[in-house]
Amino acid sequence: MSVKIAFLSFAHMHANGWARQMLTMPKGTVEFTGIWDRDLARAKKMAKALGTKAFASREALLAKKPHGAVICSENVNHREDALACAQAGVGVMCEKPLATSVADARAMVEACRNAGVPLMTAFPCRFYGPALRLKEQIDAGEIGEVLGGVTTNHGRQPGSWFANPKLSGGGAVTDHTVHIVDLLRWLMGREFKRVYAAVGYNRFKLTRKAVGKRVLDDAGVLSLEMDGGAVFSLDCSWSRPEEYSTWGDAKVELVGTKGVARMDLFRQRLLLASSGTKRLAERCWADEKDFGIAGEFIRTLREGRPPSVSGVDGLRATEVVEAAYRSAQLGEPVALPLS
């Protein structure tokens, strides 16, 4: 039986990457039910590119009874789209951040739980070789007890709706906190208990160009305390200029009682300079285990088991984001869970 997948929006182009991955899976693994998008023209274009149908209504697409739907709408629309899936009995893989507020994330988790459909948050970092090896080594005690570490998930201001907080829910803190928060929770098997955030607004040229008169956070350094006492920092800034060699990074340095680990997730790369690239450009050749997060979604649906990366994982990461904004406003650390 092939797993039937619907796509709700290509606002985030990760949907395209996952669709392409699904197309490379063994024949008969996946079947595309169709695409719905708030932008019908984009739905039509993507449907043509991926060899499937565009739907003018989300409900009409969900009525075709796909097993699962990939949600890559603008962040603020995640909730509505996920609730529609839950109502239709369709499993969900939602692009990160799961939601733009803890209340929304909770509503999504509850709706899917009540409907008995799986809810996954798309945290693909867990499926990269270096992350898997790092987890193996931490679990084997190779670096001893982890005291803390420094992490970064730098990015480049993506433009389009990302620069509009009405659609994105926020800037760099919203966009680039959750991957690392999820990685650390997964690596350490513990929850965060306190967040302090130093946040900057309209700090970078690309943001200033993209936001017009709006104000958007594009710089952030979070200080995170975990249950058990480990301490971490996370730089989520959209600080990579256009001239930089790549879009950003995902780096984790962990200091343990027996050793130190430094992971640069996308360091498997070539450096290319050409008249085409204009600048020194990175070409990453890292790969993902078992088709990464897309593979996990398909297996989850086929095997009818809970996903390894859940909606609750998305909710926890959303909590850290909300706490970070609150902390930046108060100028004080904020305790988790949020009251």
């Binding site: 803390g148 420094v150 900057g200 607004y201 700090r203 710089a219």
Partner: peptide, 14 residues
Amino acid sequence: ALLTLQWSSGIIAH
């Protein structure tokens, strides 16, 4: 130790 320094101009140093 992890230190975060902030300036009133908005600069953040870690």
